[in-house]
Each structure stands twice: as structure tokens, then as C-alpha cells.
Simulated scan of single mutants.
Amino acid sequence: MKKSSIALCRLAALAATVVLSSLAGSFQAFAEPVTINVIDVAGDLQISQPAFDKFKAEHPELVKNFVFTQATAPELAGKLKAQQDAGRVDIDFVLTGNDALAAGMGQGLWMQILPQYQSMFPNMEQLYLPGAYLMQKMARGQAFVVDWTPSGPLLEYAPDRVKNMPDTAEKLLSWCKANPGKFMYARPSNSGPGRTFVMGLPYLLKDKDPLDPVHGWDKTWAYLKQLDGCIEYYPGGTTATMKELAEGTRDIIASTGGWDINPRYLGIVPAEYKVGTLKGFHWVGDANYMAIPKGIAKEKLDVVLQLMAFILKPEQQAFMYDHGYMYPGPSIKGVTLDMAPADSQETIKTFGRPEYAGLIANNPTEPPLDAKQLVAMFDKWDRDIGAAKMQK
């Protein structure tokens, strides 16, 4: 063999040794279980935590521990941006509604999962329920829908105090003016029922473009301004509206299917309270998402991707029925109530409403505003409607 060939072989062998040593180091890093820091700004842990617990139990070689924290949706983007600018991201996994998801997309905070990791998440359109897939498309490959609901807008009320429930948008406004302070909805940027109520109005009022809050909502903004005249203040979250309804401070509040069922199950709202709809309403879907911030440590990324794929399996999706919080809950096809834990089945049987099946079947379901339009709506509402009465 020529000296030049021998030298090339030795170089190739040396290169292979370096590569194998590097890979061995990587595998060793991945082989060590990691702690995953999860932040929830959507209240989703009450639904999805059993899936996290199951993943940890089944994969001790991957996860040492989950550390869960909670925050409000409006504060998440600033928190993540500060960490990313400092080069020290200590949030590995985010559970969010489309509010904080949209804000993060606007600032470029999320890792682009698809198409890079498409092999782990194939056939998404075939996997998701149609309504959930509408929400999934809005994530643009930067997040996955965890659980889904047709949502609302619904109006929840105390039947002992509201004898003639308004059934049109015009009657609701008249009732509000006649009963100042007795109607309430929460700040849309941190409330599913709040933003669903606002996003549902363009369909009810036959506005020019329900998907363009800046140029297509003339009737909606005028209506909200009139409604503002008889609303005392806007809470920073939905729970406050539920408590005030139960206490008798408010008589009608904006609600959704999940926010109707779950607080009655928890005893926050009396079980006998009712829900109503306004004639001509369209469901405006809602979902919770799982996303990964840019800057996540490499040794955690593989684990987080496997966790996402795990949560989208039918066995874990059955947990999403929970106690009605995102009614019905599962986002993928083929997950039926009889697959859910027994206590979830009992909750839906006891606190669900038979009229929901007909309402879902007989009224159209629309997607919520896309990211850019949603942020624009939040900003305009905060500035033009809620500024003087908003509780953060």
C-alpha cells in the first residue's frame, strides 16, 4: 500500500474516532434523565397533568422531574423574551392558549417544530378532529393543539335572578343598560370566555369581516363601547367572573362549555345555574397548545419532542375529558368518553348539558382570529374599551 493511501486511512480512522467520541458524548448527555421546566398560562395542567405524570412513570430514563409553574398569558412573552435576550432560557415547555401563543409568534419566541421534526408528527390533518385542525393550522408548525373545544360564546346566568334571559345581542345590551353592573366579561387577552365573547360578536352583528378586527368590526366596536357603559369593571381572568356570579354580584357573565361545566363541578358556581345562547351565534373554537421556546437546552429538546408525541396518543388524549374544563376536550379523532377515567365520565354525566350536542351539531364553528389579528384585537380592546376599567 502506498504511503499516501496509508496516511489517508489513518486520517479517516482518526476522523471516525473523533465523530464516534462526539456521538458517545451526545448519547451520554441524552441518557441522563433531565428536569423539564413547564410553565402553564392557560390553566391546562388541571387537564393534562396526568399525561405528564404517566410520561415520567413510563420513561424514568428520560425525565428526572417536572417542575410546574403558572403565570398569566400577558406576562409570558416578556418573560421569555428577557430570558432569550440574556441567553439563559429556563423554560422548556409551555402550555398556552392562543392568546400567549399569538403574542409569542409575533415576537418570534417559539421554536419551529415543523417541518424539521415532521417524522415524529406525521399526518396531522388526519390525526386531528376538524375543529382542532383549524386551530392547529394557526400554530404554523410552532406548537401543537393539546385539547380543543368549540367553546362559545355562551352566557351563563342565575335563573333565580334572571327571569327573562336575553336571546339576541340587542336584548343583551338593553338588559345590561336596565341592570347596570350585572353583566360581566373578563379581559380578552387573559380569558377564554372573554375573547370568545368578543370574537363571536361580529357573527351575531353581521359585521363586515369577522376575521379583521381593525377594519371589519365597526358594528362590534360600537356595540362593545355601548356595553361598556353598563359594565363596572373587567377582571384580569375568568375565575373572578364565576365567583361574582355565584356571590350574586353579577347575574349574567360570558362563558363557554368548559367554563360552564368545570366550575359547577368544583362547586364555584351553583349546579342549577343555566347557560343561554344568542340567536344566530357561531361557535368560535378554542384550544390549548404546547410549544417550545427558542433557546431550550439541547439535552432537553429530544425529551420534550418525545413528550409532545406521547401527549397526542389516544391513551393520553382520553385524559383531556378531565372535569369538563375544555369540553369535550380531546383534540384527536377516535377518543371517546368511555376511554376516559371513571371520574371524568361521572363529571360529564352529572354536569354536562344534553342541549350541547344539538348546539354543536346545529351551529357553525369558526376559527378564532389568527395570531396577528388576535394581537391587534387585544391591543385595540385594551386601549379603546377596557383602559379605564381593566384589572390586570
Rank of each mutant, 00 (worst) to 15 (best):
D251P: 00
A287N: 02
L227E: 11
M242R: 06
K298P: 02
Y289P: 04
K225P: 02
R195K: 09
K243H: 13
Y223L: 11
A222V: 07
E232Q: 14
F197R: 04
E272T: 13
I292C: 11
K219Q: 14
D209R: 03
P202S: 06
D212Q: 11
N288K: 08
P263G: 11
I296P: 09
P213C: 06
D212F: 04
M199K: 06
E247P: 00
G285H: 10
L211Q: 13
V304Y: 03
W259T: 11
I252Y: 04
L278H: 00
M242C: 14
H282I: 02
G216Q: 07
R264T: 04
H215G: 07
D302G: 13
C230P: 08
W221I: 03
T220S: 13
K294C: 09
G280K: 02
A246K: 12
V303M: 11
D218K: 14
L301S: 09
V275L: 10
V214Y: 10
G216D: 07
Q306T: 07
K208M: 05
V269E: 12
I261D: 06
E244V: 04
N262M: 13
T241Q: 07
L224Y: 00
P210D: 06
P235K: 01
F281K: 00
T196Q: 01
G200E: 05
W259A: 05
G267N: 10
H282T: 03
P210L: 06
S255V: 08
E244T: 13
T239L: 14
L278A: 01
D209S: 10
A240P: 02
P235I: 05
M242N: 15
D228N: 15
G257K: 10
I253F: 04
M308L: 13
T277L: 04
G257M: 15
P202R: 03
D251L: 10
I292S: 12
D260K: 06
I253A: 05
T238P: 03
G216T: 07
Q306V: 00
A254V: 06
G216V: 06
I231G: 08
A222L: 11
E244W: 11
P202T: 02
M308T: 15
A271S: 14
